[in-house]
């Protein structure tokens, strides 16, 4: 099997008595988009800093692209692009000058540098304002310039801390497109975000952080399976009285049926039961008016997880 791009084993970071990251095990494979989720203070940024060697772990091990960020920080940092949350720029310099400083720090110079700057500006759509001082940029433009700075070094892994925070909906859509394009180029991406539907839209897998631990990890439907019990939700509009209730509940893999008004049913199931639901309604003598299913939403997983967590904590 191919070596994982990121591998943490029992990674721990303590600030005095506070454990910011607690025996974290995390594996990210090549070409994946991995989402880091979790409430404020869960330890996402701390984990990212340790991956880059910007903070030393208290214990445990980290490998990034097969390298140890504490021992080989230069090799790691020349292969990994990092976009910090609320990234800043030298405001008096133009976008191009900011980029060329970053390029030079990476040892990229001359014509190669000019080419890469042009390509990066193109990719994020800032070519027209390349020679304006960054002071005049809107937050969305700054965010895109941050991405351009990451692209300059042609990284194999990109780590972004809350990259969509300042973006308007259209910009978010463009940003997600850009992420998908980067993935298509074979770049592995880790991003942390609080905007769950965006995470769901691009991430192959997500990890849910809570108090320094990764409490859940997997694809969104994995998580839904575990947290919500049923991963599939089917909505039915049918005419047929209480007999339908019974018929639906009897179906295998159904977790829960709730009725909403006289004709609307919400079914939670462990597998895709749409066909079975339709048949059951017809067999029970009902009239099927509408049937739809929705993919489990990450928001729901998240909310439900922390509700459960709160009830345990209270108990």
């Amino acid at each position: 099997m191919e070596e994982p791009v990121v591998e943490c084993r029992n990674l721990t970071k303590q600030y005095g008595s506070l454990v910011a990251v607690d025996h974290l095990n995390l594996t990210v494979r090549k070409g994946e988009i991995f989402g880091l989720l979790g409430p404020n203070g869960a330890g996402k940024t701390t984990t990212i800093l340790m991956l880059l060697g910007l903070t030393e772990p208290t214990s445990g091990s980290v490998r990034v692209l097969g390298l140890d960020p504490a021992r080989q920080p230069l090799s790691v940092k020349s292969r990994v692009g990092y976009l910090p949350d609320q990234v800043g720029f030298y405001d008096g310099l133009t976008a191009r000058e900011n980029l060329s400083y970053i390029a030079k720090l990476n040892g990229i110079r001359g014509k190669e540098m000019q080419d890469r700057i042009r390509a990066a500006l193109d990719q994020v759509g800032l070519s027209d304002v390349a020679d304006r001082p960054v002071r005049t940029f809107s937050r969305g433009m700054r965010q895109r310039l941050g991405v351009a700075e990451v692209l300059i070094k042609r990284p194999q892994l990109i780590i972004m801390d809350e990259p969509t925070l300042a973006l308007d909906p259209e910009a978010v859509r463009e940003f997600l497109d850009l992420i998908r394009r980067l993935k298509a180029d074979g770049i592995t991406i880790m991003l942390s975000s609080h905007l769950l539907h965006q995470v769901q839209a691009v991430c192959d897998r997500v990890g849910l952080f809570h108090k320094g631990r990764m409490v859940l990890e997997g694809t969104v439907s994995d998580l839904a399976q575990r947290v919500l019990g049923g991963a599939y939700r089917i909505h039915v509009e049918a005419d047929g009285g209480t007999a339908l209730d019974e018929a639906l509940r009897r179906l295998p893999d159904v977790v829960q049926v709730t009725r909403d008004g006289a004709q609307t049913y919400h079914i939670e199931a462990r597998s895709d039961l749409r066909a079975d639901v339709a048949r059951a309604i017809v067999e029970a003598g009902g009239r099927l008016l509408a049937l739809s299913s929705d993919v489990p939403r990450l928001d729901e997983v998240y909310t439900r997880y922390f509700q459960k967590e709160a009830t345990y904590a209270a108990a």
């Binding site: 910007l54 090799s75 940092k77 990994v80 990476n106």
Partner: peptide
């Protein structure tokens, strides 16, 4: 204060 430090130190320099 300009929030450039972590970005700069994330480049391959000490």
């Amino acid at each position: 204060n300009q929030r450039t430090i972590s970005k700069v130190l994330a480049q391959p320099i000490y």
